[in-house]
């Protein structure tokens, strides 16, 4: 593999550049996936049948906590990539670890939120609205869960192998993914929760 030292480590080989480009296209597909979910959500927004409506079940405080945790994690992974560019492996790993802990916190609140919904009679099979709500949130949550393990394995690899073009590439792509989940969450927060509570 030819390594081009004039570029950042994650872009330094041909294979790395291909992977980053390919991942951007994958994110394009992910945008379509969530766009379909949002469109469907708007169809079901007021189709709550005999079940509760959004205004009845949404609560601001857990959602706000989730938002703060996830936005903060997007910031810390940015710092992690910055540290990686400076070649500071320890700092990078710490920032990645903080990111994952914040992600775990997000998941904790989300699980709490889901159990509350189910206690309030808004289960997966209650109505078109609740089915869609839980599926949309669940798809995002599943992405975060997968991201948590993915990130964990990358930290382990960086620890074992150091900052190589390969591990740097993986870390950078993971950071793109994590930022993307954050962007999706901003849409969820604005168009599902805030709109639903108004």
């Amino acid at each position: 593999m030819k390594i081009d030292h004039s570029l950042p480590l994650e872009y330094s080989t041909e294979e790395n550049r291909l992977k980053i480009f390919g991942f951007w296209i994958f994110l394009g597909a992910e945008i379509m996936l969530f766009a379909t979910l949002f469109t469907s959500y708007f169809v079901y927004e007021n189709r709550s049948g005999n079940g509760p409506t959004g205004a009845e079940i949404f609560e601001l405080s857990p959602v706000l906590m989730e938002t703060i945790l996830l936005l903060a994690s997007s910031f810390t992974i940015g710092l992690g990539i910055h540290a990686m560019r400076l070649g500071k492996q320890k700092a990078m790993m710490s920032f990645f670890a903080v990111t994952l802990v914040l992600g775990l916190g997000f998941l904790g609140f989300e699980i709490f939120e889901f159990t509350t919904y189910i206690h309030e009679g808004a289960g997966l099979s209650t109505s078109g609205f609740t089915s869609m709500l839980l599926t949309t949130l669940g798809t995002h949550g599943l992405h975060v869960t997968l991201g948590f393990f993915w990130g964990l394995f990358i930290i382990l690899q960086v620890k074992k192998r150091g900052l190589t073009p390969e591990t740097a590439n993986k870390s950078f792509i993971f950071s793109l993914y994590w930022h993307f989940l954050d962007v999706v969450w901003i849409f969820i927060f604005s168009f599902i929760y805030l709109k639903g509570m108004m």
Partner: peptide
């Protein structure tokens, strides 16, 4: 990706009793 979401919704309707495409309960 639209097909992915669609088939997932269909699967859930058939296996987990969600109400996406049901006739009542707010399905469409």
């Amino acid at each position: 990706p639209v097909l992915t979401v669609l088939l997932a919704m269909g699967t859930m309707d058939r296996l987990f009793d969600t109400k996406f495409f049901a006739i009542g309960d707010g399905g469409s």
